[in-house]
């Protein structure tokens, strides 16, 4: 969906569901996911439908992910850090199974 204009800035290694993803300085978690071609970051609590970042400005909450063990963080507001562990979230029904 997106490509980088230039592979500039130091690379930052994070993991997404255990998979290694290379982000860049200045990336938020949500931006790093989009740049890596990961097109959904959670499923909804009601129907379990997949969701991806929608507004990238902190209002829609569709980019909620687990960051370093803390759930429901807004991926679009959190800058990536070296070694950060990002996990996609499951909706309530799936998590309860």
């Amino acid at each position: 969906m997106f490509k980088r204009l230039a592979e500039k800035g130091p690379a930052i290694a994070i993991t997404v569901d255990g998979r290694k993803v290379t982000a860049r300085v200045g990336d938020t978690v949500a931006a790093a996911l989009l740049a890596a071609g990961i097109d959904h970051c959670r499923t909804t609590p009601v129907t379990g439908a997949p969701r991806a970042p929608y507004c990238l400005m902190g209002v829609c909450f569709d980019c909620l992910v687990t960051v370093d063990g803390v759930g429901s963080r807004q991926g679009c507001l959190i800058p990536v850090r070296e070694g950060m562990k990002v996990e996609t979230q499951l909706g309530r029904r799936e998590a309860g199974r």
Partner: peptide, 23 residues
């Protein structure tokens, strides 16, 4: 609500902040 549908503002934010352009 489908993944792949975003706001125009989101794409602009990705361009400004991370240099990501639509692909």
């Amino acid at each position: 609500t489908l993944p792949g549908v975003m706001t125009a503002g989101a794409a602009q934010t990705a361009l400004k902040a991370q240099g990501l352009v639509v692909d």
